[in-house]
Amino acid sequence: MRTFLALLALLAVNVALGATRPFEQVWLVELGVVAVMAAIIVLVSMEVRREPPLVRLFAGVGFFWAAILFGMTLTDYLAR
């Protein structure tokens, strides 16, 4: 139940930021909030923290590989 309320609160923060757009680089904060929400869901709702290390590894590897795809592709687009 606590996780559900935490997620709702974070969602509220993001929606508020989205609606009001307090400052220009607000997307940085919003993506940070998304990262926290994702971490809560993976670790708590999906009980990864109570899983053996192997499953934890595979939960993390997915995000790391997505980071490789983003990072290397951005070396192309940001430096064009």
Binding site: W65, I68, M72, T75, D76, Y77, L78, A79, R80
Partner: peptide
């Protein structure tokens, strides 16, 4: 997973990416 750009050196990729790949 870090090397795929060597297929695209002359395909309009940025010089930084070409060097890295």
């Amino acid at each position: 997973f870090f090397v795929w750009g060597h297929h695209m050196f002359v395909n309009g990729q940025s010089d930084l990416a070409s060097l890295a790949f």
